[in-house]
Design a protein around this nucleic acid. Sequence first.
DNA 1: CCGGAGTATACTGTATACAGAATACAGTTC
DNA 2: GAACTGTATTCTGTATACAGTATACTCCGG
Lengths: 211, 211
Amino acid sequence: MISRQPLRDQIYQEVLALIYRGELPPGSRVRDTTMAAQLGVSRTPVREALLRLAREGTLEADMGRGFSVPVLRPEEMREIGQILAALECLALELSAEIPADRLLRLREIDRELAALRGDVDRSVELDEEWHRTLLSGCPNTRLRAMITNLWQVPSRYMRAYLRDAGRVTLSTQHHASILEALRRNDRVTAGERFQHHWHRGIEELGAWIAR
Amino acid sequence: MISRQPLRDQIYQEVLALIYRGELPPGSRVRDTTMAAQLGVSRTPVREALLRLAREGTLEADMGRGFSVPVLRPEEMREIGQILAALECLALELSAEIPADRLLRLREIDRELAALRGDVDRSVELDEEWHRTLLSGCPNTRLRAMITNLWQVPSRYMRAYLRDAGRVTLSTQHHASILEALRRNDRVTAGERFQHHWHRGIEELGAWIAR
DNA sequence: CCGGAGTATACTGTATACAGAATACAGTTC
DNA sequence: GAACTGTATTCTGTATACAGTATACTCCGG
């Protein structure tokens, strides 16, 4: 079965990648006509992609003034962080006991993450994959999709932070302590540690943005 | 200050209202060209509105086959219900103590809700307003916006249910018990009752859809 | 040398046009 | 009479065109 994806979805991915890679830095305007020319498509699917990104918080849309990459605000990161912490905890609660092979896979990702030095994009990707893997057993499809979508905001913040601060030590020790609780199937403790993990991350990013 | 709203937003509201009112029943296809002609605008802003509705779950978008109003599935209601229960609880936790005048306003809405007989749309609107009012003190703007957006799914289900079942007794007694806990500023109990409220609602709707 | 008004340019928001795919229907064959 | 195939029509997805508005630049006055 071959899959035909609408242009808007491919463009969506492409623009997201551009923002993630640091081209299109915060504050820069995104002109649909320019983007269309750059990607070799027309404005219509580009605008559809940009409108979606705007609704998801990765872009800003001012009436009559088009789209721009929003500047990083500690507030925004805090708000999204609170939401994601709650939703990921919920997803964990709704999941059945995490099977051993998945716990193994999670440890493996952490190892790879710890071994990385300097590759910002790969680091954040691995962190995201860790969370996705952890919650992959949650039967609430809609919830999983929402979490994946919301992640693009922290993703943006983390990439900017790591790139700027040079610090590529994503807190794998937090991950480890969460896994430890899960290995005992102690969901309550795991949830608490999850919350703690998020709050620490928010604080760290907030302090950095405040400069 | 006059507000110029993009057409796509006005159309968004309009189509949403059409679905809510029961025109465009579940399963019916929504053709952008027809809708555009009906509203006296072009296809472009219509498609932008429909794409947004599709991303929010109020419409379905099949590649190459356009848009349609999804049929009601107990699964979907359960999934959204779990998410909304968690998010509204979070919003309540993040809120400062509910001031007396807001508690009064909430009681007033409940009274109005109890007095209604048969007006489905008004009932659901009031129920939504009750929740919006309750959480209006939450400082997490993003969270509030998300909750409002997510509500369109339960809204659709509740309207269909009430219209079909004829039963217009939206559980105001649950509301009352939640308010009672809040009056004592007992957030934990209020949260628990909130969860209970949602779960009962989900069960009720689920049982009805299963027929 | 600085500030403001006017014009020119560029860009957004919306409308229309076009191409390819999906569906429905009819004709033909078994 | 039923099933399949070819064709016509409709509709989606994408491209292009147009109009109104915001921005930038220049020219003039102070």
